[in-house]
Computed example of a mutant assay.
Amino acid sequence: MRYLLIFWAGPLALFWGWYFLSLNDVSFGTVFFSRQMHDLVFAVYGNVLDMDPQAIPPLAARACVVDSLILFAILAFRRRREIRCRRGRERYS
């Protein structure tokens, strides 16, 4: 579970942290968190994908949700015996 937090939640937290800080121009005196960098990054992504840069963040959010659901479904499938036994013990306790 520790590796799940490191390799899944860590990059998501970094990306969405950068996104909301740069969206609101909380730059802390750096260019990396500035609104100009935010607009430039999404303009580059928009040009590469040949789409409107304003349409990219909702697509990224939807992709994160879908990927998270798939990841948790895989984890639940791998731990289905533990989940089933835990539910059975609660029923008879």
Rank of each mutant, 00 (worst) to 15 (best):
R35Q: 02
L40Q: 03
F33V: 07
M1W: 10
L40V: 01
I70N: 01
V66N: 09
I74W: 05
I74D: 05
A76I: 08
G88Q: 06
A13H: 11
V41W: 00
G88W: 02
F15I: 08
D52F: 13
P57S: 06
N47E: 15
S27H: 12
W18M: 07
F7N: 15
Q36S: 01
C85S: 07
H38R: 05
P53N: 00
R87N: 08
V26N: 11
Y19G: 03
S68T: 06
Y92R: 13
L40N: 02
A60P: 08
R62S: 10
L40A: 02
D52M: 14
Y45E: 06
V65K: 10
N24E: 14
S22T: 03
M1C: 03
V41L: 02
F15L: 10
A63H: 02
M51A: 10
Q54M: 15
R35L: 00
F32G: 01
G17R: 14
R35K: 01
G29T: 02
A60D: 04
V65C: 08
V44M: 07
W16G: 04
M1Q: 05
P58T: 04
L5Q: 12
L21E: 06
V66L: 11
V41M: 00
A13Y: 08
D25Q: 05
D25M: 03
R84C: 00
R81C: 10
P57D: 01
H38S: 04
L49I: 09
D50M: 15
L49M: 14
P11F: 01
E82I: 04
W8Q: 09
W8H: 11
V65L: 09
E90P: 06
D50A: 14
F28K: 12
A61K: 01
A9L: 00
Y92I: 10
V41C: 00
M51N: 10
I74S: 04
M51Y: 09
D25T: 03
E82K: 09
I70Q: 03
F77G: 07
S93H: 13
C85M: 08
R84Y: 01
L59S: 14
V26F: 10
N47P: 12
L71G: 07
L49F: 09
V31I: 11
Q54E: 15
R89Y: 09
M51K: 14
V44N: 08
R78F: 08
D50Y: 13
Q54Y: 15
S27N: 15
